[in-house]
Write a protein that binds this DNA or RNA. Sequence first.
RNA 1: GCGCCUGUAGCUCAGUCGGAUAGAGCAACCGCCUUCUAAGCGGUAGGCCGCAGGUUCGAUUCCUGCCAGGCGCACCA
Length: 558
Amino acid sequence: MSAAQSNLSIQDEISAAILQILNQAQSQLNCEIPGELTLDRPKNREHGDYATSIALALAKPSGQPPRKIAEIIVAGLSRRADIAAVEIAGAGFVNITLATASQGGVISNILAAGKQFGHGNKLNGVAINLEFISANPTGPLHLGHTRWAAVGDALGRVLAAAGAKVVREFYVNDRGVQMDKFGASLQAVALAQARPEDGYHGAYIAELATEVIAKSPKIMELSGDEQLSAFRDLGYELQLAQQKEVLDKFGTHFDVWFSEKSLYENNFFTHCQEVLKSKGHVFEEAGAIWLRTTDFGDDKDRVMVKSDGSMAYFASDSAYYISKRERGFEICIYMLGADHHGYTGRLKALAACNGDDPEYNVHVLIGQMVKIMEGGEEVKLSKRAGTIITLEELVEKVGVDAARYTLIRYPVDTPMVMDVDILRSRTNENPVYYVQYAHARICAVLRNASDVGIKFGSEQIHPDLLVHERERELIGVLGEFPRVVAGAAELREPHRVARYVEELAGVYHRFYSDCRVLPLGDETPSELHSARATLCLATAQVISNGLELLGVSAPEKM
RNA sequence: GCGCCUGUAGCUCAGUCGGAUAGAGCAACCGCCUUCUAAGCGGUAGGCCGCAGGUUCGAUUCCUGCCAGGCGCACCA
């Protein structure tokens, strides 16, 4: 841990101090004091830099009037040199205004920690399996997958920033009925026959079949089932490679591509079945083998092995979960589309059948639908895939940064509409440019500062000079970043980082218009110029760190 | 029928492990480039936070019911 990380922020110090004061007043209060207290940043700036409503919350249990408790806090805090004012407001809010000089700590922490600023230890050492996309390797990735490609990747970064040991995993459904239909569709096209009714009908099938033949011309000499499985296997390889390539260009990388087929190798499935059986929730009925998930709230029991001896999909789900747990993952995060939300119950029940705590060990995120608009109309058709818009096409239309950013900035349970025209625009309407522009703008200012010989950096903080309202505001928002990252990780909501970075960009733009950074004309460079340039430097660092967590670039010029 | 998600400004959406006057962008109107990136900034206007109850000192946030929309309820994957 670096020195900067071990430094408590001023905010943490004050909340710890308040808790200490309350604990010391235990005899008067005679009630339980919470173990943790977070200071809020009040919406209204007249309410100071930080505020707490703890006095109101403790009024009831302690039987004391809230203002009296507030007075105890005020008395305890007023001696501190880093606080300029502590006031009681309203029914019993305690409003705290920092001493100007104490604001420097934030800036120096940012500069010292650099790219690590914002990283924390809330999830230190927790092994998390993050499974997302897991599209069938039978076609290109579409819009729904794209949402997960962006959000899942960002969530992985955010969790890692909170200290978790994250493994990103893509589950490849490389066996089963869908694969067979896929192979049959390829074969049919190659033989110029009609594709099976329930097969794959996208235009990409024809392209794939051509590629398969080009790669392995002898395939046409094979016959029947042999040819079918050759088409299936080669088509699968090519399609999976295509998915990997597209994701790579999108900036989403996986640590593990987990093969469903592998669950049935080396008797692993049999082993899983034994494990579940030993916990007492497996039973046989009507010739099939079931897991009694209704023991744990599922609406019906689930078949693992069908009466004809073949594997139901849930067999793989079960084995896969057990594999994750046996590989040492404490928390398994599943990111599913809204059309699969019915899985939640059985996945949680499965964990419970395995003796786990479904509330802790399993976390299911449900992503709502994504629509795409262009020219005021919903885009529905795709030349390549027949009926769906692919990840590739979206990126062609708007670019990686705009696509990723937009997909991440909404909570996943909000159905969202992407407007291509807005994503291509370069205005306030397009938040990704708004944020990137702030970063580029700072870089320009700092280039100019160097040209003019203004010094900036950790030796040039001069916090006591930063008294302008806009400077105060900016410093306050910068200090929130670690808390935002920790919250995003804990709640599995990376969009919080995007919203934060937008707020920060806004606060910076306002600072920029009101506070001249560089000397005007023949003005002599002063410490204030240095202090402001240093503040700019710290802001650029935080914007860049925030965008990094989203997998979006922070350009130095635009 | 049962279950999950959603309902906040004219539009697209934040906010909600209960807190002070509910936010942003767009659209409308009025301003700001003779010196740092105007892809920017300031201002005006715009709200029964779906409806009705309940818990609370305090509810857009928690609970219940209802209304509206989306999506699911296979020995399919």
